[in-house]
Structure formats: C-alpha cells, structure tokens
C-alpha cells in the first residue's frame, strides 16, 4: 500500500512538472526482484485513486524480468529457476543486470 501511495505521489509530481494536464494513462515498470506483487499493487492503486482526481487513470504495468550478465561472454540472460549460470556459455561468473526496477516509465497527459 505504501508503494502504491508512492506511485501516486510520483504521478502527481511528474504531472505537475509536465504542466499540470490531466493524466489519462501511466506506465509502471516493475522488476521481478523488486519485492512487489503486481496484482497486489494494481489492487492498492485502484483503492487509492477512487474518488480522487486520478480516478479514471489507467495503469499499464510492464514486468521486468530478473536478468544477469555474463562476465565471460557478455550475454545478458533471463534467470529462470534461480539459476545464475550463463545460459549462452555456461559460465558461473555472472553479475546482476536487472530485475529490481520500480519505475514510472511514462505518463500520458491531456494538454493543460
């Protein structure tokens, strides 16, 4: 719930920076390692926007998979079943590359 509240704070702050037009759509990018359950977030957002100026706002939530980068062959690969070894060359020498995002990725606004 507090993450959903932070999302709305971010939407309002960015909308103000963009001239204050009414926000019609907002994009979120939520990583597999962010600790956020997308369905719960969606539910909390719906609860929080009800009866506010953002009541009609539609959220598009993009899932960002857990990825690692191989230090050997530089491939970036998706981690499945928590296996950290490179899926291209098999090397175990890999580093975190993505999946902890929790970002506002776009806003669609009416002209102010």
């Amino acid at each position: 719930m507090s993450i959903a509240a932070s999302v709305l704070d971010a939407v309002r702050a960015e909308a103000a920076l963009q001239g204050g037009g009414r926000v019609t759509r907002a994009g979120l990018r939520i990583g597999e390692l962010s600790g956020v359950a997308v369905e719960s977030l969606r539910f909390c957002l719906e609860v929080l926007v009800a009866d506010t100026e953002l009541a009609a706002l539609g959220f598009e939530i993009e899932f960002a998979p857990w990825t690692r980068r191989c230090r050997g062959c530089a491939a970036v690969f998706r981690v499945t079943d928590a296996r950290p070894a490179c899926t291209a060359c098999g090397s175990g020498d890999t580093e975190a590359a993505g999946g902890d995002q929790m970002e506002l990725s776009f806003l669609e606004l009416e002209e102010p």
Binding site: S6, V7, A10, E14, Q18, S105, L107
Partner: peptide, 14 residues
C-alpha cells in the same frame, strides 16, 4: 501527450 520517464517510484525514500 505521451511523456517517457524513468522516475523511480521510491525516489523520495532513496
């Protein structure tokens, strides 16, 4: 108007 962003949701906390 579509505005692409990369704003962290918890940027105030961060």
């Amino acid at each position: 108007m579509l505005v692409p962003l990369e704003r962290k949701v918890l940027n105030e906390n961060d």
